[in-house]
């Protein structure tokens, strides 16, 4: 067992650029730490620092090869160019889950909200972009076939970075297709008997105590 891994920060010098600024740091730092260390201004797309909030989106260029990732989970490397990406733009697909009264027409609704989803050209752009190794493309296909439960399951570890949305040439917004699939699965199908029983007990108790029904939503 070596201590090197624990001691980690062997003080190797690393030079790279962040948002166009040349930066000198030591090995073992993440891109977020490097940006802070060098005082790169305006790095506010940072939240959890552990890979679950999806905010710290970066574009990386290594020897002309461009990729994307999460800055708090990516370590510095010599010679790479890093650009912190701005937050995603406003959503283009609109729906309100309260409008869904009937689960039988959900397929039609899905395709009217996400008309592009059936036009996937299987370019794998979304899969290559996803920092969480999600099978985004398959998930979109499942949703387009009306298999929302399975589609949603594919997106289980999605951290909402929306890098797949950026990568998609058909503007399908795969991240939101995934979230839609997960949400309607719960909305229509999650009816747990233990919860329903307790809710009814509490309702009856309120009626007995003369508090009446709740008017909240």
């Amino acid at each position: 067992m070596s201590t090197a891994t624990h001691e980690g920060d062997n003080r190797t010098h690393i030079s790279l650029t962040i948002n166009g600024l040349a930066v000198d740091v030591t090995a073992g730092m993440t891109l977020v730490e490097a940006a802070w260390h060098a005082g790169v201004p305006g790095i506010t797309g940072v939240g959890c620092l552990e890979g679950v909030c999806g905010s710290c989106r970066v574009m990386l260029r290594r020897d002309k090869v461009v990729s994307v990732g999460l800055a708090c989970q990516t370590f510095v490397e010599s010679g790479i160019e890093v650009i912190f990406l701005p937050a995603a733009s406003a959503p283009r697909h609109h729906y309100d889950i309260n409008d869904f009264k009937d689960s039988w027409d959900i397929h039609a609704r899905f395709h009217s909200i996400f008309p592009e989803a059936s036009r996937c050209r299987h370019c794998h752009g979304c899969v290559g972009a996803c920092p969480k190794d999600i099978s985004v493309e398959d998930g979109v296909a499942l949703a387009a076939q009306g298999r929302y439960r399975e589609a949603g399951e594919a997106f289980f570890e999605c951290v909402m970075c929306e890098l797949c949305d950026v990568a998609c040439p058909e503007l399908i917004a795969p991240a939101h297709v995934g979230l839609f699939s997960r949400r309607i699965t719960a909305h229509f199908h999650l009816r747990p008997p233990n919860l329903i029983t307790r809710l009814e007990e509490l309702r009856q108790k309120r009626v007995e105590m003369g508090e009446g029904e709740r008017d909240e939503d």
């Binding site: 889950i97 949603g152 979230l179 997960r182 949400r183 309607i184 699965t185 719960a186 909305h187 999650l190 747990p192 919860l195 307790r198 809710l199 509490l202 709740r214 939503d217």
Partner: peptide, 14 residues
């Protein structure tokens, strides 16, 4: 219990 119902209504899975 009603908080759970509200969250499920919005689409949260458990």
């Amino acid at each position: 219990p009603d908080v759970l119902r509200w969250l499920i209504h919005l689409g949260m899975q458990f």
